[in-house]
Design a protein around this nucleic acid. Sequence first.
DNA 1: GCTTTATATATAAGATTCTTATATGTAAGG
DNA 2: CCTTACATATAAGAATCTTATATATAAAGC
Lengths: 110, 110
Amino acid sequence: MIGTGIKRGTAELAVLSVLEHGPLHGYEMARRIEQQTKGALHFTLAALYPMLYRMEQRRWIRGSWETSDNGRRRRCYCLTPAGKKKLSPLRQEWSELFQALRRLKKVSHA
Amino acid sequence: MIGTGIKRGTAELAVLSVLEHGPLHGYEMARRIEQQTKGALHFTLAALYPMLYRMEQRRWIRGSWETSDNGRRRRCYCLTPAGKKKLSPLRQEWSELFQALRRLKKVSHA
DNA sequence: GCTTTATATATAAGATTCTTATATGTAAGG
DNA sequence: CCTTACATATAAGAATCTTATATATAAAGC
């Protein structure tokens, strides 16, 4: 597993990525992210909920209260057009970061 | 450039990477990281110094005061054996994180 | 001589974010 | 019943980051 919780800063990308597939509520997001990364990424729920709130303030995602079949209330989030637009440059940014770190390794080995 | 400052959490890896090449002081570390990553990674010095202090507390690096040729005092840091040992698993961890994020993209596109 | 830029480190204040623990409540399985 | 899974949330404190400021020397330009 990657450290404890999720590596700082990668959480937003992970959330946007799973939401790209379709609307989800917090608990399920955490479950899928953990499952789809085979346990490599683990969300702490207490860190996830405030983060979803912040992302909603920024209008990257939009939440609405739903009542599921079994009567449980839950907050369902979907990507906004703005959030969708952020995804591509955000991935690009992370990709550049990785390359930069690799470059740093190579040079320091030279 | 990657956001402002350096992406959270990657700073430690960057510092250990440049120190692998040989001892350096803070200012020079920041300069080299920026240069070697072609400006992709930028250190804010006010964030760097406390971080070096923390890494020293953890015994990953060791600092000593030096007086350079031109009479300026500066704190020179080198990797400890413990720090060297951390480098490999730390790189592994980041590599796994990247793979996990890619996996998340693929699945969400499926 | 004076000013600016580069070198070099550091701290303070405030904002943000993370961790750990706790609270709440329903539903399903044993 | 009791435990686990579902589902969200907050509080307290720790850790970290940003912006601004302080200090001081040296080199370069004018």
